[in-house]
């Protein structure tokens, strides 16, 4: 083992110099850190984008058409549903008014 000839003072200097001594990292260290960070690397991102770009245009158009048709059907269902609710409310209102009118009429006859 190497002797520190100067004793404690030599050790002081050697220890302080250790701040500037670095050790090599393993070869794949950066890759493992990137993987641990979950950062998609350039090539992986491009592979994903490429698969999207390679999908035929006709497939995109069919999908878009089906989506639009579905949206229209859902909107129609909504319109019918709200129309039924509105109609029911009107009917219930009319019935309530009729019952109230009959009640008031009976009260007038009893007083008379």
């Amino acid at each position: 083992m190497h002797r520190i000839a100067c004793g404690p003072e030599g050790l002081d200097s050697a220890l302080a110099r250790l701040a500037f001594v670095e050790v090599d990292t393993p070869e794949d260290f950066v890759e493992r850190v990137m993987a641990a960070l979950g950062r998609a690397d350039g090539p992986e991102r491009f592979a994903l984008l490429r698969s999207v770009l390679q999908t035929p245009a006709s497939v995109w158009q069919t999908a878009r058409r089906h989506t639009e048709q579905t949206a229209e059907r859902l909107a129609e269902c909504d319109r019918l549903r709200w129309g039924a609710v509105a109609s029911s409310a009107v009917i219930l209102g009319v019935v309530a008014l009729g019952l109230e009118a009959r009640h008031l009429s009976r009260l007038r006859e009893e007083r008379a």
Binding site: I4, S13, A14, R17, F20, V21, V23
Partner: peptide, 20 residues
């Protein structure tokens, strides 16, 4: 172990560092 870039020490000093 290696010296950081820009660090200037003698061979003996570096060997001391390795020993420590």
């Amino acid at each position: 172990p290696r010296l950081a870039p820009g660090t200037d020490v003698t061979f003996d000093q570096f060997e001391q560092c390795r020993a420590v």
